[in-house]
Design a protein around this nucleic acid. Structure first.
Lengths: 231, 231
DNA sequence: CCTAGTTCCTGGTATATACCAGATTCTGGC
DNA sequence: GCCAGAATCTGGTATATACCAGGAACTAGG
C-alpha cells in the first residue's frame, strides 16, 4: 500500500500539522521518495496533485515548496494589485518583460472585431512575496494611448489610463477558465513546461470603445478569485 | 524526438483540423501510443495536458473524448442552469444523489459563523449533453426552508426559494479557485481519482441572513466563467 | 429475444532505470 | 577574499514492464 494518494495525504498532514511552514523547501524528490518508500514517479504524482490543490508549488529544477496562502483577487473592488497585496500584508512587485507595438498578426481577434488595427503589447510578470505567480499580456489600443511607451509601465495600468490619459474604464468583461501555460510563460514563471494555470481574460471599455485586452495566467495554487454581487 | 509535448501538439492539430469532432472517442491509450511511437506513459502525459487545456476529456476506464465547447457560466445573469444551457443550444440535466439533514460535524464553518446549527445538505451532479461535468454540495439553512425534502430538488434552487418560500436572494458572495476532486466527487463524475477541477463557492444571503452555501466542482475543461461589471 | 455470466480490454497505478540540461555547490587559481 | 570553471545534484522527461479492477463485449442458457 504505497500509492501516490497516500503519499499526498502524508505530506498534506505534515503541512496541516504545521511541521512544514509556508515557503519552506521540501527535500529533493529522490530523498523524499526514499523516505516515504515510494518510487520517484509516485512521489512526483503526489506533489503534482498537491500543487493543483494549492498546498505546495514547484519551481522548475529548483525544488518543491510549501505554498503560502492564496492571493485574494477581488473582481468587485477596483483596487490595484499592489494595494490589494498590501491589504493582505504581502509584498508585490511587477516586472515589465517586454513592450512595443504588437505585430498585426498577433493582434487578438477581439480587437480586430472592434475595428482596431494597431495596439501596444506589454508582457509583465507579477510577483508575490518574491515568488512569480502571474504572467500577463496587455494589449492597449494604440489610438487611445499615444506615446504609451514613454510612461512607467511597471505599475497599475488603470491608474496610468486615468491619470495620464483621462480615460475612465466604464465597462469590464471578464472571463475565467483553466488553461495551459505556453513555453514562454512557463519559463518566465520558472515552472515546468505546460503547467496548467488559471486564465483570466479582461476586455475593458471606455465610452463604448475597447481600450484594453488583457490575459493573465496565474499559477493555480496562488490565486482565489472573489466577487460579491447584489442583484 | 518523441516527447509528450509533440504528441500533444499532434493530437491538438488533428482536433483543430476538424479531423476529430467533439464527442468522438480517441483510440485506446495502447493503440494511440503505438501509432505515435511513444510509450503509453508519454501519451498519457500528453492527454492529461490536453485535458487541462480543455481539448479532450477522459472518462475513467472508458477512454478519451474530444471536448465539446465549454459551458459559459455567466455570474452576472441570474438565469438558471437549464435556461443557460438551452440558450447555448445544449441539453442539461441535474441528478440528485443525496438529500437530508447535514450532520452537525460536517456543517460548513461559514454557516456556523453565522449562528446556524442545522442545515439541509443536497448533493447533485449536473450533466451537459449527457456528460457529467459538475458536482455540487448545497447547504440550506434548515430554519429558512422547513420541509425542504418534500420539494423537487432536481431543479433550480433559486426558483424553489423564490416560488415556494418567498425568499429573494439579495446578495451573493462567490469565490473561484483551483481544487482537487475528492474520491466521492471523482466517482460521481466518472473521472480519475484526484482529478483537478475548478471550485466555485457561493454564499447566498436574503435580508442579511445566510440562506445557502454551495460548492460546485467543475471539470476544468467544461466551464468558462464570465462576468461583466460597470463600475 | 432477452438475460446472466464469463472473458477480454481498458485505463489507473506502481516499479526500476536512464539520460539530459539547468541550478547549485565546490574548488582551485588569482 | 573574490571569481571563474568544474563537478555534482536536481527536476523533467522518456522507456519497458507489470498488475489490478471496472467496463464492455461476447457467449451460453433460458
Amino acid at each position: 500500500m504505497a500509492g501516490y494518494q497516500e503519499a499526498a495525504e502524508r505530506i498534506a498532514a505534515r503541512i496541516a500539522a504545521g511541521e512544514l511552514k509556508p515557503g519552506v523547501k521540501l527535500g529533493s524528490e529522490r530523498q523524499l521518495s526514499e523516505q516515504m518508500s515510494v518510487s520517484r514517479l509516485t512521489l512526483r504524482a503526489a506533489l503534482i496533485k498537491l500543487e493543483a490543490d494549492g498546498l505546495v508549488y514547484g519551481k522548475s529544477r529548483r525544488g518543491w515548496f510549501v505554498s503560502p496562502p492564496r492571493f485574494v483577487y477581488d473582481l468587485g473592488r477596483r483596487a490595484n494589485y499592489k494595494t490589494m497585496a498590501a491589504a493582505q500584508e504581502r509584498s508585490a512587485q511587477i516586472d515589465l518583460l517586454d513592450s512595443g507595438l504588437a505585430a498585426s498578426r498577433e493582434l487578438p481577434s477581439c480587437m480586430r472585431e472592434h475595428g482596431l488595427t494597431r495596439a501596444f503589447l506589454l508582457r509583465r510578470v507579477r510577483h508575490l512575496d518574491g515568488r512569480s505567480v502571474m504572467f500577463e499580456s496587455i494589449y492597449l489600443s494604440a489610438e487611445a494611448v499615444p506615446g504609451l511607451l514613454k510612461h512607467n509601465l511597471a505599475d497599475s495600468i488603470t491608474e496610468l489610463l486615468r491619470d495620464d490619459y483621462r480615460i475612465e474604464i466604464d465597462r469590464e468583461d471578464t472571463s475565467v477558465r483553466s488553461a495551459l501555460l505556453d513555453s514562454m510563460q512557463a519559463e518566465a514563471l520558472a515552472v515546468a513546461p505546460a503547467t496548467h494555470g488559471v486564465l483570466i481574460e479582461r476586455r475593458r471599455f471606455a465610452a463604448g470603445r475597447l481600450i484594453e485586452f488583457d490575459t493573465e495566467h496565474w499559477l493555480p495554487g496562488a490565486i482565489e478569485i472573489r466577487l460579491s454581487v447584489e442583484p
